[in-house]
Design a protein around this nucleic acid. Sequence first.
DNA 1: GGAACGTCCTAT
DNA 2: TAAGATAGGACGTTCC
Length: 631
Amino acid sequence: MECAGRKGISPEPDTDPVIQIASVVQRQGETEPFIRTVFTLQSCASINGSQVLCFSQEAQLLQSWAEFVRTVDPDIITGYNVQNFDLPYLLNRAAVLKVDLFPYLGRVRGIRSVLRDSSFQSKQMGRRENKRINAEGRVHFDLFQVLLRNYKLRSYTLSAVSFHFLQEHKDTMQPFVITDLQSGNEQTRRRVAMLCLKDAWLPLRLLQKLMCVINYMEMARVTGVPLSYLLSRGQQVKVVSQLLRQAAKKGFVMPVVKMEGGEDYSGGTVIEPEKGYYNVPITILDFSSLYPSIMMAHNLCYTTLLKKGSAEKLGLSAEQFIKTPTGDYFVKSSVRKGLLPEILESLLSARTRAKAELKKETDPFKKQVLDGRQLALKMSANSVYGFTGAQVGKLPCLEISQSVTGFGRQMIEKTKQLVESKYTISNGYQADSKVIYGDTDSVMVKLGVSTVREAMEMGRGAAAWVSTYFTPPIKLEFEKVYYPYLLINKKRYAGLHYSSRPDTYDKMECKGIETVRRDNCPLVANLINSCLQKILINSDCGHPALSVPQGPPGAVEHAKEVISDLLCNRIDISQLVITKELTRNAQEYAGKQAHVELAERMRKRDAGSAPQLGDRVPYVIIQAAKGPPLI
DNA sequence: GGAACGTCCTAT
DNA sequence: TAAGATAGGACGTTCC
Ligand SMILES: Nc1ccn([C@H]2C[C@H](O)[C@@H](COP(=O)(O)OP(=O)(O)OP(=O)(O)O)O2)c(=O)n1
């Protein structure tokens, strides 16, 4: 939708007219849209391949578009931020113009579409305020919301997103230019219409390219929630839905439990890293789906938990139940199989299917998409564990979650000991092995071998051997080899990743370092990335014929060059843009922060265009705390 | 000037 | 069914 706003002020439905609405309609699975229509206020020259419908009255335009929606009768409505901007604007504008037949956009006749505020809040996703318009029988599937939930990007503007996924630069028009073109002639309005159609089609293309509908349908089926919940609700509703599905099969009902927000409980162990640069292969072993597999192996569930003393009361023998590291008791599956393990089996089998498809795929972009799908299913499985520990949730059970993390802590410790005790000189190996780092479910081992091939072979052997010490389906896997490996700190490292072949690395992998963080500027991320490349990739080939030094000296030189470019003003300002999320309202912050101050100043200038809760605020630092301006 | 704290964002 | 979990580094501000 385009409207004719006034310069410097964000558009208001009370005063600023809707001048165009473009709609592009496509059947899921087909590659081309079968309807391209633009509704324009005033005449508009024709556009090849599109239907142009001109109206002299804005009210007619709106009414006609609503009828169009009812006639086309779509299952899914998408767009870019249409949920929070376009549709509310249209609804409000229609009310101002008294277009009484407009707000019936659903499939059920006579149910009026109304605008509501809704807000979503969770620890991991922060707080977001959204609008919601009901359209019974249709699903609002706003691409913006999909991207916010599934992709961590520096910027979520349609133009940034379009460049990121399609490598296309989106044409944009300043709002006041649109207003000027509207008051021109049928040719200038055609320019607006062309853009409007393009902007309507773009989200559809992205939705298709990212396979959003397919992946979300799978998630909806696996977890048993409506498609719309996946964009408007959190993880809890998915777990509850699966719990109810399993419970119903067994004739159980779910109790209502209220719980005061209590103390946090302890989670996974992060092994103290032996920081440093390793120019030898480092083997990484990692439990596959650790927490879910713990819950399955030990049959941890609400329905298998024994309260203190009930083992005796029920006359259970010692082989019929287990004691967890936290001192809680659960019956074995021979007595009663838990619901959670069954849910996890089904989620993990969906993940296994997704991983199999991922393996078959050769197109790199589709591979990424399928990896996202696989990770979403892993997330759902881990959320089953998270759900039991969610103290502001519907059915918290810390006995389960604490037992899970307790087992996890024991397991990583045991794995470290096993590996270090077997791979020793006294057992006939080349060197005494050492676990140099590990996080929750993984150990990074220096086995003392010099080739990637050996590191892989020994890794596979070690993983299989350690696995025998644990109850299935718990399984330690050889995951990859890093060579070389730069271990900077807990949760911060980089290395060249070998897993498919021992002779060539697959990629450089960076964890936790600036290069993968969105809260610093691209200049820093790129600089550190190229320094790491010099350090890791060209570590020992400081070829004298090369004019550019590699390895650490090359990295230092490169950093100096970039700093001097920066001081000499040879860096484009776009490289200096930092973005940070606005996670709460200005007055709720305890300390001063640049992006918060900026957002507040913008709000005072024009509240409509200022960053909202949950938006990322882009800014450039132009002056040091003390001293002269930098630019 | 340094410890404590708040915030952001990531790893698992 | 409103809202998965904890661990932890880096950096800026506030407090003393
Ligand atoms: N979003 C996440 C990621 C992880 N974990 C916990 C549960 C996992 O079992 C454990 C290890 O996480 P990994 O990232 O290593 O992933 P998994 O072991 O679950 O899966 P994979 O098979 O990919 O290793 O950490 C979690 O609770 N929530």
